[in-house]
Design a protein around this nucleic acid. Structure first.
Lengths: 147, 147
DNA sequence: TCAATCTTGATGCAACTGCATCTTGTTGGT
DNA sequence: ACCAACAAGATGCAGTTGCATCAAGATTGA
C-alpha cells in the first residue's frame, strides 16, 4: 500500500522501523528488570542522577525538564512523586518568586546506589553484551547525528 | 555516584543513554507531526499496515501482538479502538472458539493512504535527512544486533 | 473421559500521560 | 510606574497504560 515512496528507500524505512521497535523493546526489558527488583522506573533514576550531577546547587524544574526532554506537566508530576517519596527537596528560588530549586537528598542518593547495580546489569544484559566496542561507538555516532 | 562500574565503560553507558533519549525524542517528533495533521498515532498505522500485509487472511490478535511487541491487554484495547473507529473487522475464528481474526477494511486502507504521506515526510525530516545511505545501513546493522 | 493446565482475549482498577488552562511572578516597552 | 506579553509551575479532565485477574475454550495426560 504505501508505495508512493517518493524519496524514502526501503532500507531507510526498515532502519526507521527497527529504531522504533528495537529501542522500545530493549528499553522495556530494562524497565522490567528494575520492576522485578522492586525499584522505581528509569525516569526516577534519570532525574535523580541529573540532580546528583548538579550538586550542590540543584536544578530548576525547567532545567531538569530540558535535560530529560520531558513535557512540563510531566516534570511537575515527576518532581511531585519524587518529593512525596522523600528523594528530593524543593526549595523556593530566591531569584524568581515563581520558581523552585530541586535538590537530591540523602535518601535519593541511597536510591541511586540501590538502583545502579540492577540498572548496570540490565544495560549489560540487554545492550552492552550484544555489541562490541566498535559497534557501540558506531551506534553512538549514528544517534548523535539524529539529535 | 554510580562509579561502581565494574564492566560497563563510560562509552557504553553514554551510547545507552543516547539510544534511549534520542530515539524517544525522534519518535515524539514524528508522533507530533501526525497529531498536527489530525491523524491517529503511529500504533494505529503499524497495526493497520501489518493487517494490510496479512491480506487477505488477516491475523489473530496474538499474532499482531507479537509482531508489534505489545502487551496483550494493550493489543486488546488497540483492536477495540480500531474496530470502533471502523478501520478493522473482527471475525470469529472457526479453528478456535476463543479467538478472532482481524482484517483491515476499506476505511482502514484509506487511513493508511492518508497517513503515509504525512508519516513519510516526518520520517524524512526527523530521521532520513540526518543520515546518508551508509549511515542508515550502519545504524540498521547495530540495531539488528540488539534484537 | 475427565480433571488439571495452558492459551486467548477481555476488563476493573489504579497510576500515568496529554491537553488545555490557570495562577503567580517576571520582563520589556512606553 | 504601568500594562501587555511572557515564563514557571500546577492541575482538572479525558484518554491510555500496567497490573491483576477473569472467563471461556483448547490441550494434555492418566
Amino acid at each position: 500500500m504505501p508505495n508512493e515512496k517518493r524519496d524514502l528507500s526501503d532500507e531507510t524505512v526498515t532502519a526507521w522501523a527497527r529504531l522504533v521497535r528495537i529501542s522500545q523493546a530493549v528499553l522495556s526489558k530494562v524497565e522490567a528488570d528494575l520492576k522485578a527488583a522492586d525499584l522505581p522506573p528509569l525516569s526516577w533514576y534519570d532525574a535523580l542522577l541529573e540532580l546528583e550531577r548538579a550538586r550542590p546547587d540543584g536544578l530548576r524544574p525547567y532545567q531538569l525538564q530540558e535535560r530529560m526532554l520531558l513535557a512540563q506537566y510531566n516534570m511537575s508530576r515527576l518532581t511531585d512523586r519524587l518529593a512525596k517519596a522523600g528523594y528530593i527537596e524543593r526549595e523556593d528560588c530566591s531569584d524568581d518568586g515563581r520558581g523552585q530549586i530541586l535538590k537530591i537528598d540523602s535518601a535519593g542518593r541511597g536510591l541511586l546506589q540501590r538502583m545502579w547495580p540492577v540498572y548496570r546489569k540490565a544495560i549489560a544484559a540487554h545492550f552492552a553484551e550484544k555489541l562490541d566496542t566498535g559497534e557501540t561507538a558506531a551506534l553512538s555516532r549514528m544517534l548523535i547525528k539524529l539529535r
